[in-house]
Design a protein around this nucleic acid. Structure first.
Lengths: 158, 158
DNA sequence: CATGATTGTTAGCCAAGGCTAAACTGTTTG
DNA sequence: CAAACAGTTTAGCCTTGGCTAACAATCATG
């Protein structure tokens, strides 16, 4: 029953990089990320629906499915959820529309997305990489950071 | 409720912001994000275990649970998964250790995390915000962008 | 050294977000 | 105008990642 436990011990903090954040703060970090994950997908759908409406005049489930690379059944299920959340109005077998709340969310998401995307390009990231990274990052950037990104981009472009 | 469709219609692309990306590219963006989500949590656990080992000499389930703000049962279940994936070795009721592969993952994650964190600080983001944002962003930053962030940070600090 | 506190595990529940297969609707066209 | 096809929905399944409650092991300590 002896403890093993490689005594790799006593690692002096000075040699082992940044210290652990205080417990409370650390916990808050993870919680924030978990919360973001809950809304992330919803926002992506709403944003995409908004984009389809703006660019195509309609948003069909099939388009969403192919753009998201997901099955139509998955989209259908998600639409019901969006409906229940009061973000879209849908009549069976017809195009979707956003409720007022949905439009607000789409607008906000699109704005965030664009700030991040333009920021990455201003930083010097290749366009197609920037698109991919922006898609992943947009939901994890605080308002504070977003504002800084925007300022940075503007300075770069002047 | 029936005022459908602000006829914002026929939106000329020039007025409606960036065009939709070509379908294939668009689909790849979402796929990349979905894939990131699958490994994200795993990496967070492994990274945290690595940090606990470095700073404390041991990684107990209770510590992980409180730092992640998650129940012990959740941690216990996750540890079995990490075990199955060959990332940690665990004997019941004992501290965890990382396998060689786990250590590699922890190292890589930690490095990414630090690059993003230091980049955000160099950009001018407040420390506690930077920590939160870094936690969320780290899994969505491509190698290309990461390299650019690192260069930027170094220039800033010179 | 017994016992209570702490820590870890197991069982069983739930929601989210995927999937395929099958059923249904709407549209196009022969 | 009927049949075929494209689009949509439903049913039912799976995995992940949470949770609580009950139980088990370990550890401190009176």
């Amino acid at each position: 029953m002896s403890d093993h436990q490689q005594q790799r011990t006593s690692s002096p903090p000075s040699l082992s990089g940044d210290a652990l954040p205080p417990l409370e703060q650390h916990a808050r970090q993870y919680e924030t990320v978990r919360n973001a994950h809950e809304t992330e997908l919803i926002e992506d759908y709403v944003e995409l629906i908004g984009d389809l409406l703006r660019h195509r005049g309609e948003a069909r489930a099939a388009d969403i499915a192919s753009r998201m690379a997901v099955s139509q059944a998955t989209v259908s299920k998600m639409i019901r959820r969006l409906n229940d959340l009061g973000l879209v109005t849908s009549k069976p077998y017809r195009s979707l529309f956003l409720t007022e709340e949905g439009q607000k969310m789409a607008e906000t998401s699109r704005a965030r997305h664009n700030v991040v995307l333009h920021f990455l390009r201003a930083l010097g990231v290749n366009d197609s990489t920037a698109r991919i990274d922006a898609e992943g990052m947009e939901h994890h950037v605080s308002d504070e950071t977003l504002a800084i990104m925007q300022r940075f981009t503007e300075q770069q472009n002047s």
